[in-house]
Structure formats: structure tokens, C-alpha cells
């Protein structure tokens, strides 16, 4: 938090204060029966160019947060600026959506066209960009996700991981500053999951795109710069992965489990092997163990 406090506002790509979203449940006459608070006065600051993890069990409000950032829903209360634009401003809503692109969970339900390159062009086409430039953007986006060879194919014949790559290309072609992956790996096999995660890291490192990785798998966040843990519409923990993973009892309280390798290193430590801290990857644990040998 201290680091964030020192950062000037220009470096913040997303800044929310007291952000609240309420869903109203109405009866047949339209009277409010009950109010579900999906986001409860959240303060969130995200620095440009980081890989941010947002984790929490189902229904903790992480998807609602993503939809707020993408301006798909308007907050009930509080302030939120994305890339310097206010989400309450009707005019800038389209701009926010193109700046903070979103990749969803189901690969089939977010691909619009039956030709890969035409789907990739969907965003720029909506923005009214001239054909020549759309062509350049689409080719660039498809090359950077490694799907250029498949540009004339139908998405029907692609694997789940490849479909998500196409979806990422569809967002990239709008040239966003930030990509939100809203549980984009939840429906993929382990191979596809790793594939999409690697792609997100690659885009983050090589293109400087800010990544918001929303998930409920802890092990996907070992490479993140900063993690927000959400529960019950609030941010309950935040910090670097190493700090978060060290607080395992708190995590369990919030309905989360440690990644396997971290749990292993922890058990080893508890059983008298003098490891320095929690390990985030197999390689790291291996190094530490070899150093002890």
C-alpha cells in the first residue's frame, strides 16, 4: 500500500474508491424484495503494466468487479476511473471498453464470426476503423497470439485453448492498455489453461499490457506481481504472491487452498526441513532443497 501511495495518479490504470454494486431482486410488482451487495465499498488501485491476480471463491464479486472495470455495468456507489476515464460518463464508455478488453470464460460464447480473422476484426469494425488499418491490426493481433496460420479457419475446428487465443486476439485488435481475463481458463483442459496463462504473461512482458487475471485457482497466480483476494464483495487481502501464500490459514478461511507446491514446501518446513520461506514453483523448491543438500 505504501508503494501505491507514493505512485502518482497517472501511473494508475484503474482507480476505484468506495466502489459498490448492488443487484436488486424485485417481486412481480417491481418492488424491491432484497438487495444483493456484490461489491461492498471497494478501494482498488492498479498500476499500469502489472500482472494483477484477483482471486476468490464463486460469488465473491470478482466478475462483478471485472464488469465494472469494462463499463458493462455502472457502479451503484463510489468512483471508478479506467485509463483516466470516468465510468459514469456515457460518452467514454465505448472508449473504456476498447481500452480495457475482456476475455470471458466460455470460448464458444464469445466468438462472433465463423471465420477466425473476421471475429478478430469485430472490435475494430465496431469502432469504425478504416478497412486498411483493421487488416494491419488483425494480422498483428493474430501473429502475437500465434494464430496467424489459422486466420481463414472456422473456430469450430480449434481446441479450447486456441479458441481463447482467438478471443485474446479479438481484444488485442482494439489495442487495449489492459486485458481482463475473467476466469478464461475455467473451461479448458490443463494444457490449454497453461497455454492461455503463458500468453497472458507474454503479452504483459513484451507489450506492456496490464493484465487482470481473475481466477479461483491459486496456482495460476504464482507469477503475478500483485494479488487481491476477494470474499463477500470485499477485498480481504492484498500483496505479492509470496506474502499472500504465507498466510495460508487466512486463505482457507476465505475458501481458498494453497497451490500444491507451496503446500508441499510448507509441510516440509513444518516437519523440520529448514527452508527459507514458501516456494512458488517446482524449480524454486528444487533449488532450495539442493542448497540444503
Amino acid at each position: 500500500m505504501k508503494e501505491l501511495a507514493r505512485k502518482r495518479d497517472e501511473d494508475l490504470i484503474i482507480k476505484g474508491r468506495g466502489l459498490t454494486t448492488e443487484y436488486f431482486r424485485r417481486d412481480d410488482e417491481g418492488n424491491v424484495e432484497s438487495i444483493d451487495t456484490a461489491l461492498d465499498h471497494i478501494d482498488i488501485s492498479i498500476i499500469k503494466g502489472r500482472f494483477i491476480g484477483i482471486i476468490g471463491h464463486n460469488g465473491c464479486g470478482k466478475s462483478t468487479l471485472a464488469k465494472n472495470i469494462n463499463a458493462l455495468i455502472t457502479p451503484s456507489e463510489g468512483s471508478l476511473t479506467v485509463c483516466g476515464m470516468d465510468v459514469y460518463d456515457e460518452e467514454s464508455r465505448m472508449k473504456i471498453r476498447s481500452m480495457a478488453g475482456m476475455v470471458f470464460q466460455n470460448p464458444d460464447n464469445q466468438i462472433v464470426s465463423s471465420i477466425v480473422e473476421e471475429d478478430c476484426a469485430f472490435g475494430p469494425e465496431n469502432l469504425g476503423i478504416p478497412s486498411q488499418e483493421i487488416r494491419e491490426r488483425v494480422d498483428r493481433a493474430l501473429s502475437s497470439v500465434g494464430m496467424f496460420e489459422k486466420r481463414r479457419n472456422s473456430p469450430e475446428h480449434l481446441s479450447g485453448g486456441q479458441k481463447q487465443r482467438v478471443a485474446v486476439a479479438g481484444v488485442l485488435s482494439m489495442e487495449p492498455e489492459c486485458i481482463i481475463f475473467d476466469e478464461s481458463t475455467a473451461m479448458l483442459d490443463p494444457e490449454g489453461r497453461q497455454d492461455v496463462l503463458n500468453l497472458a504473461h507474454e503479452l504483459n512482458e513484451k507489450k506492456g499490457v496490464t493484465v487482470l487475471w481473475i481466477t479461483h485457482y491459486m496456482e495460476e497466480l504464482t507469477g503475478a506481481d500483485h494479488i487481491f483476494v476477494m470474499d463477500n464483495g470485499r477485498i480481504v487481502m492484498e500483496g505479492a504472491p509470496r506474502e499472500i501464500f504465507a498466510r495460508d490459514e487466512e486463505l482457507v478461511q476465505h475458501g481458498l487452498t494453497l497451490p500444491g507446491i507451496t503446500l508441499l514446501s510448507r509441510l516440509l518446513k513444518e516437519n523440520g526441513i529448514p527452508l527459507r520461506g514458501v516456494s512458488l514453483s517446482v524449480d524454486e523448491l528444487y533449488e532450495e532443497l539442493m542448497a540444503l543438500w
Binding site: 469494462n70 475482456m102 470471458f104 460464447n109 464469445q110 465496431n126 469502432l127
Partner: peptide
């Protein structure tokens, strides 16, 4: 789902 995804990609 699709309507949401299309809106997120600036369709109106």
C-alpha cells in the same frame, strides 16, 4: 453470454 461479450467489444 454472447450479448455481453459483444458489448464488451464495443458493439452497439
Amino acid at each position: 453470454d454472447l450479448a455481453l461479450a459483444m458489448e464488451a467489444r464495443c458493439y452497439s
